[in-house]
């Protein structure tokens, strides 16, 4: 498997957290219940991840079929060795961080400036205060 470029001062788990960072200001509310808000965001993230998984499986099957390499039961019977198992678990950590982004952002929202974009819009409309 081609190794991807990783030239970063941040380790993979840190990148997973940093990639999720919340943007400045109060997030708009779309639902009356904050828990519904988060639930929906998790669902949308899962929607993305399922699409990615499907595309990956599709790539894999096409490659295997094109090379005549696929055995009828090989995937079903596959078990990773210890090192591979560990690598796959790291991928699982990154995956969960992505999906749980809204909860991480809710934590970040509990500190720092939470000015709404309405406040900002008023502020930036004021020729003496922008």
């Amino acid at each position: 498997m081609k190794k991807q470029t990783t030239q970063s001062p941040f380790d993979a788990a840190t990148i997973a957290k940093m990639a999720n960072a919340k943007s400045q200001g109060k997030r708009p509310e779309y639902f009356s219940d904050p828990m519904a808000e988060q639930h929906f965001s998790i669902t949308m993230a899962l929607m993305a991840e399922l699409a990615v998984a499907r595309e990956r499986i599709d790539s894999l099957e096409r490659v295997l079929v094109s090379k005549g390499l696929i055995g009828s039961n090989e995937v079903e019977e596959y078990e990773p060795d210890a090192a591979t198992g560990q690598t796959r678990q790291l991928a699982q950590v990154e995956y969960s961080a992505r999906v749980l982004r809204p909860l991480q952002q809710a934590v970040e929202a509990m500190s720092g400036d939470q000015s709404s974009m309405s406040d900002m819009a008023d502020k930036l409309s004021d020729p003496d205060n922008g």
Partner: peptide, 18 residues
């Protein structure tokens, strides 16, 4: 949410090869 997923996706790409 799509915009937030878009930011998450883009940041994960560039942070690993920053």
């Amino acid at each position: 949410n799509l915009m937030e997923v878009r930011q998450q996706t883009g940041r994960a790409i560039v942070l690993r090869q920053i």
